[in-house]
Write a protein that binds this DNA or RNA. Sequence first.
DNA 1: GGCCATGCCGCAAACGGTTACAGACACGCG
DNA 2: CGCGTGTCTGTAACCGTTTGCGGCATGGCC
Lengths: 358, 358
Amino acid sequence: MADLGEASLAGRPVAQAAGAGSPVRIGDVARAAEVSTATVSRALRGLPHVATETRQRVLAVAAELDYRPNLPAARLAAGTTNTIAVAVPDPAAWFNATMVGALGREMTAAGYDLLLSGVANLDERQRFIELNGVRSGRSDAVVLVDVALDEAAAEAFVAQGGRAVSVGFRTKALSSVTIDNVAVGSDATQLLLRHGHRRIGLLSLDSGDSLNFSIPAHRAQGYEQAHAEAGLTPDPALRVSTSNSWAEARRAAHALLQSAERPSAMFAMCDEQAFGIMLAARDLELCIGEDLSVVGVDDHDQSRLVGLTTVRQHVARQGTVAAELLLRMLQPSVEPPQHVQLDTELIIRDSVGPPSVD
Amino acid sequence: MADLGEASLAGRPVAQAAGAGSPVRIGDVARAAEVSTATVSRALRGLPHVATETRQRVLAVAAELDYRPNLPAARLAAGTTNTIAVAVPDPAAWFNATMVGALGREMTAAGYDLLLSGVANLDERQRFIELNGVRSGRSDAVVLVDVALDEAAAEAFVAQGGRAVSVGFRTKALSSVTIDNVAVGSDATQLLLRHGHRRIGLLSLDSGDSLNFSIPAHRAQGYEQAHAEAGLTPDPALRVSTSNSWAEARRAAHALLQSAERPSAMFAMCDEQAFGIMLAARDLELCIGEDLSVVGVDDHDQSRLVGLTTVRQHVARQGTVAAELLLRMLQPSVEPPQHVQLDTELIIRDSVGPPSVD
DNA sequence: GGCCATGCCGCAAACGGTTACAGACACGCG
DNA sequence: CGCGTGTCTGTAACCGTTTGCGGCATGGCC
């Protein structure tokens, strides 16, 4: 206790003008605190078996020396990275950005770093999976946002010790957080049918771009199902698909709306596509909600602004749920994969009305 | 060469059913290829001083064994991480998400990982800077997106060997990519003045939320300057500020537009705020472009949809430029910080017209 | 034929922590 | 007083790469 004063007198670390000269290592702290490196390691990480007095001395000395543990070294020795890797098809898309934001907030609070990868096609997906297996030590776990893995690949991944949670896609082997996409498609379509629409266009997502085929497929299924329940069969000509960019959606909608028997309403896979439809309608001087009804999915920040009726999914909540699943999964005790399905909600705005009489 | 066949016969790696049993290490590859670990290391990384024949044998064996180098170990030994850490105030905001997307694309192509951190206030900024100094070995370089560092902090950071590029904020010690924010403010304001507006509201950004005070300050300066050039003095009552969320902007605009002498036009710091203004106008049944003119900044994806006149900044290009600066900075040769200023562009849409005669 | 340059390759020492194991010490109890 | 128990601490063996340096052929040249 006598020599404590020597080391930790000042309030702030000595400036030390290190100039990248000689980085302080754990041994330096140990020497200055007159303990072993083992004790320093334990003290700094809050592990038990360190006397309070000793711990405080170590803490003081470490602060004094402005010691920063070297991460790769710690990771190598401990075999854990405190990092999670997340794969998203397009980091700039609204859904993904919002998801990553929520996920990041939670994981940062829990002491994890977030490694972000854009994974836009099957090659990149393959690469991501290979690179982020446990064996590489790049990350402790992986979250796949709208990046589907087939059952075999998922099982292989966990068999090698990989941990993953999937967002938007359900696989037996992985924990997942999803919504009921059949219900999404059905709810949207039913709304349009109730308003009296009989020619309802379906703007689907390209399977080429998307790595998660099941989402558009299930929503389309809901669309079919709603028609069937009403005793109707949708015209296949009313079905087109694009990527999730509004620009492409606009082009596709433009073409469809100029066809001989144009739809009186459109259901789009996401609000960004719906925006594209609205732009196309504007081009053709069709009034939204009168000449053309539109329903999207997501409840994008801007949907309210343009009065878009949509099926809301709580994106941020999906992010926090994914984080919870991750943290649980990172515990030493192994649990079977968890599957969480969140509710969606139909949000009625101005973009839907009865079909105009031609 | 004779034993090559033994190791690399098959097209794909043996399934090996590792079950996380015994990870393949570099020594295993070395043994199987009958070379030293040094040679394996060199061969796999494409370094010189390896005979072509040997290299191919090593490659084949490594593929056969499905070897994955352990990253922390490699990083510890090499003292480099091939990772860059990026700090953004809010990962979900459109500008940031788009920026991160572009940056990530470039850096991934160059073989770097992207570590994403939300840095929303000064404490988090402090923490980010401390955590990502060179000494921690967490990342090779840092990019600060709309997260300003004062001159002293920036110098201290580079003095310790840290490398950083700053986006949206210019500091002597750091490379930076910026736009001319005074011109942005001035261009937008001049447009409104030319249309005959005399009461132009300014929706600024909270300095509390934003870590980059200079952006709203400079734009406000352009606003003042444009007024001064026209021989006018803006009414301070027309100046409010919020965060960059449209919801807050909406509330603020709502209040301002209900005041006795309401502005006939508004200039917002970003398109998201402008959207909020447009919502407020809708609430009050004011017609955009007639009863109220609005100008934003960014050229957000949705701006076109709602006909928002705005000052476009090329976000993705800022991202690629930042990536170039980073890559140059990561070269062994030390260069002085580079400063790149990109052009902006006034995009005229429907949200601006002459003031309505009251 | 000797010598030097050159190209490949291996040995072994880092890199900077973590942690199993054992030692030291104090204490309480029979 | 001996012994078990429990708490604190140190010793040293890893963790899995990278890389400086030296060795050994080989080939060309004088």
